[in-house]
Design a protein around this nucleic acid. Sequence first.
DNA 1: CTGTTTCGTTCACCTATGTTAACTAATTAT
DNA 2: ATAATTAGTTAACATAGGTGAACGAAACAG
Lengths: 198, 198
Amino acid sequence: MERHIDFSNLREHFAETDYFSDEEFEKFTSYLTIKYLKKKEYFTKQGELCRYLGFVNSGCLRAFHTDSRGDEFTMYFAFLNWWIGDKTSFYSGTPARFSIQVLEDCEVFQADKKRWEEALDNIPIFEKWYRVKTRKSYEATQQKIIDTQTESAEEKYVNLLTNSPEIVQRIPQHYIASYLGIKPQSLSRIRKNIFKPK
Amino acid sequence: MERHIDFSNLREHFAETDYFSDEEFEKFTSYLTIKYLKKKEYFTKQGELCRYLGFVNSGCLRAFHTDSRGDEFTMYFAFLNWWIGDKTSFYSGTPARFSIQVLEDCEVFQADKKRWEEALDNIPIFEKWYRVKTRKSYEATQQKIIDTQTESAEEKYVNLLTNSPEIVQRIPQHYIASYLGIKPQSLSRIRKNIFKPK
DNA sequence: CTGTTTCGTTCACCTATGTTAACTAATTAT
DNA sequence: ATAATTAGTTAACATAGGTGAACGAAACAG
């Protein structure tokens, strides 16, 4: 049924760091299913089990935590070539600590835990890739803690403008505010400062 | 020379999650050296290469980032059974993003990159342990980002009192303030609120 | 195409934390 | 033991970001 899926983005994504033979790559894709998600749908819902890890082949999503006051904090935006899911929930079977919601209609390649682990067991190059990926995610998250603590909201926004123009261009401002850890009104105020300084 | 090191803490630490045979455990310890560090000395210095990963067998340390204004932010305190080091620097050879300084005289079991990777290659159970460890570190760091963003300084301190009494008891307050992301004066104010509320 | 919802902006006011500085208590070095 | 340093507290004032409300502009749904 789902023959002829175009896995070229994923192919290139792996090629950036590792050499997968055609056989290894095809073996890996055989563990994946494709999922189409419309704007506002959820890939993962906070509080529920996260059954899948996924690769974003098109569209975009945001991962956000809703706290006890009902305020949302956006942890990341996921575009082409991003991996999504709450690994803690996926591996430990605990409730997901955040939701992942579609901002632009998506194609996602996904695998459930059984298949993901089969792939890890049966494709050593994938296992190796994943090990390094996990380490880099850890490092990036640690860096994010440093940035979160040492930068003002205005600095964070200015850095976003230069380092992540794709976010600024594609993502509505109130989500960007939530990504920066501030309210939309505060982001408006900051933008006013930046763009009309005198 | 360094015969008869007592590795029992490390032995129990591994036993919490994995079964290491005596042979496997002894093989692992053969990759380690012991390092004694006095108060105020550094295990890792921000900006320099982090050459070792280490296991804290006694004493305690703090890992902290110093930002461009000279302000310090404490990322974690490490007590008995904690692993320390900046993995990003250790693996990538980049300058360490934070320092790790001794708060109470320490014994640390450590390995440099060559030995660490030999141990990973030669002791599958250690490799397995480490893989899970890395994942859990990632998960904990992600949770810390959520907490950082969604809790006020007072909430963070109250949580510390109940969840990490060891930190509150052993660590000087100005370091705790830096761990919470606030100034010592602000922590004093918060403590006054909490302890003499009326 | 039109009514309705969502988004972004602005404003006045509020609150948590930062800043500077002074003072005391505790710790460390001589 | 004493001097010097470091740690913790308090207070007055400053500032970044939050809150609630109002309004026009976009986006969306029927």
